[in-house]
Simulated assay, not measured.
Amino acid sequence: MTDRPARRTQEQRRAETERRVLDAAMALIARSGSRAVTLAEVGEAAGYSRGIVYHHFGSRERLLEAVVDQAQRFDIPGYQGDGLDHLVRIIEAYLRNVVRRTPSARAFLQLWGEAIAAAPVLAPLFARRDADFRQLLADVVRQGVADGSVRPDANPAAAAVLIVGLVRGTGLQLIAEPPVRDVPALIQEAARSVRGAFAVTP
């Protein structure tokens, strides 16, 4: 007598369907952007029908919102007592995620480019998420000022804008066509630039 595999719950089946749909959507967007992507195309790429995609997400706009949420995720290092080091490790983690050139990273930067071009669905989604990312970075800068690792005259809000520009601009270049062969050296230069800009001077 052999043990039968446990039957998946409805919640597990739903989560699996949503994961496959999001993976398919990110792959399609990474390849050609979001403008031409339809629910039917996503459903077919995921191995389902358009109806399944509609059932789980309700609309193309809701699907794109879920893609933005999923594609933006990367493992953010924790604070270990040194705010400047924390800031640098966040930047390194962000750029390493881009360098992996996964469909999610490519899809995120494709969508961000469309949002910059004022895509009506994407622009407000990215406005909110970019504000959250800037807030995170500003809080890290404040923590660095408090623990003495970041120069006390640093402006957290301005620093956050500068850092987002650094990682997004570098990320766009890396995702399109890496401009340098030694990508780890590029990440190291980004880290060195941030340390030089915000470190406490002797």
Rank of each mutant, 00 (worst) to 15 (best):
R168N: 12
P152E: 15
N155V: 15
Q135P: 02
L162Q: 12
R129V: 03
A127E: 14
L136I: 00
V167E: 10
F126R: 05
P120M: 12
L125Q: 11
S149C: 04
G165H: 06
R134L: 10
A158T: 11
D132V: 14
I163D: 12
A131T: 13
I163S: 09
R134D: 14
A157N: 09
A127V: 12
A154W: 05
A159E: 10
R142Q: 12
D139W: 08
D153L: 02
A131P: 01
L125F: 06
P156A: 03
R129I: 01
V121N: 04
P124Y: 08
L166G: 06
A157H: 13
V145T: 03
G148V: 01
V121G: 04
V145E: 00
A158P: 00
G144C: 08
L166N: 03
N155G: 12
I163V: 15
P152F: 15
L166M: 12
S149A: 03
L137Q: 03
A146W: 03
A159L: 10
L125Y: 09
V161L: 14
V141P: 01
V145Q: 05
F126S: 10
G144L: 06
P124W: 04
Q143V: 03
L166Y: 09
L162A: 14
P120A: 12
R129C: 04
G169W: 10
A158H: 11
D130Y: 14
L166W: 09
D132W: 15
G169R: 06
L136A: 04
V141W: 04
D147V: 07
V161S: 14
A119R: 11
R168S: 14
R151E: 10
P152Q: 14
L166E: 04
I163T: 13
D147S: 05
A160T: 05
A160N: 07
F126E: 12
A123F: 06
G169A: 09
P152V: 13
V121Y: 03
G165A: 08
D130R: 13
G144D: 08
A159W: 11
R129E: 13
L166D: 02
A131C: 03
A131K: 09
A138Q: 04
L122P: 11
L166I: 09
R134M: 12
R134S: 13
A154N: 03
D139H: 10
R151N: 08
R151I: 04
V145H: 05
P124R: 02
